[in-house]
Write a protein that binds this DNA or RNA. Structure first.
Lengths: 208, 208
DNA sequence: CCGAAATGTGGACACTGTCAACACTCGGTT
DNA sequence: AACCGAGTGTTGACAGTGTCCACATTTCGG
């Protein structure tokens, strides 16, 4: 632990991290709207305004929290990805793609607050490059990895590779949003799962 | 006009509509966060608190605004749909599906504020029915109409019809969100358009 | 015609983000 | 060792918000 809070002392020790982490708890419980600067400061045991020594404004704190949330999403996806153990390379690659999608949606549904913060703020790295070395970190990085496997294995043609990342991403992201705040929020779980499988199947077929 | 504002009088005449409509303007300009109850009241020329005679709370006003926004989205989609004039029935149906998707995304990008309010609030009718008569109003209704055409024409098999609505919807919805607030917000327009076409193509292929 | 229901007003409260001025602590220079 | 400035945390203030309450006005039905 590099940053213990030295309790009792005037200076906190690692306030920035403390703020971000309790902010993450707030976000987990109530989403972005539940993250109030003053409330976070209160929980950390520091005066309001202390946060301004470490974050320009609320948006900046939210961005930091978003980064942490994104890390958790990435970790969850990596864990799920590791469970795929098919032998046939093509089947394996296709299942890995589906696993990535399922993990993405599962995290969104399990942690709606974190998912929202991860994407709401202008936090995460934005994608603006044409097609150079694509982002190789975070959920998008994992997706690109799996899609590359899919082309290496011959399932996804080279010339159909560009743009496939966005297509996959959009599908699972949209599904998540529709189920969280959107019109699908009342859909029973079994139907929801079925719809997700249908979605993954559609993408799997449509890519090739 | 059933609800003129009788200026000068103590009672407004049609305050509910007035509040919703100026609220819509606020939302158009600044999204849901830009819709402040007091600001709306101020613009309408009525005291704060007046809104509480017509809406339970801010969320209720936001829901009403969301309905109006949803109507605009529907109208935009219907307009774009009318421009498809292919002769071959299969080509026509497939193009109509793509047109629906393009119109959806185009509206989201052109009116981010309205798009956000339309889906953020617990406004719109939620989908909870298994597969009975699907919602036949709004964007979802249009989508279902087009998908039914697609089955009637033989492109989409009967047994693959259920779930296809959610798949299509999720894809374009997710694309919109990613381009608005999400990591694709910095993507240049031409690349964005290309990615959208790739997305629509993927869905078109994957459905059948 | 008159009272009740509907509608609009004004005031108050708790809460928020943010700015400015002040207080404390610590590390490096002399 | 003394000191001073930079970094960090605090207190106070202000404007803005949503919401509740009591009150004022208007409209409408019996």
């Amino acid at each position: 632990m590099t940053g213990d809070a030295r309790s009792g002392s005037y200076h906190h020790g690692d306030l920035r991290r403390a703020l971000a982490e309790t902010g993450l708890e707030l976000a987990r419980a109530s989403g972005a709207d539940g993250v109030a600067l003053r409330e976070v400061a209160r929980r950390v045991g520091v005066s309001h305004n202390a946060a301004y020594r470490h974050f320009a404004d609320r948006e900046a704190l939210l961005a930091e929290i978003g980064s942490l949330a994104m890390e958790r999403l990435t970790a969850a996806m990596e864990a799920d990805l590791a469970t795929i153990t098919d032998d046939d390379p093509v089947v394996r690659a296709r299942e890995r793609l589906k696993a990535v999608g399922r993990a993405y949606v599962a995290f969104a549904l399990a942690e709606p607050g974190l998912f929202g913060v991860a994407f709401s703020a202008k936090a995460g790295h934005a994608v603006d490059s044409p097609a150079g070395p694509p982002v190789d970190v975070g959920p998008y990085g994992l997706l690109n990895t799996v899609l590359d496997e899919l082309t290496a294995v011959g399932y996804l043609a080279e010339d159909r590779r560009p743009g496939s990342d966005v297509a996959c991403w959009a599908a699972v992201h949209g599904f998540s949003e529709l189920c969280l705040d959107g019109p699908l929020r009342l859909l029973p779980v079994d139907l929801r799962d079925a719809a997700l499988e249908r979605l993954l199947d559609t993408v799997d077929r449509g890519l090739a």
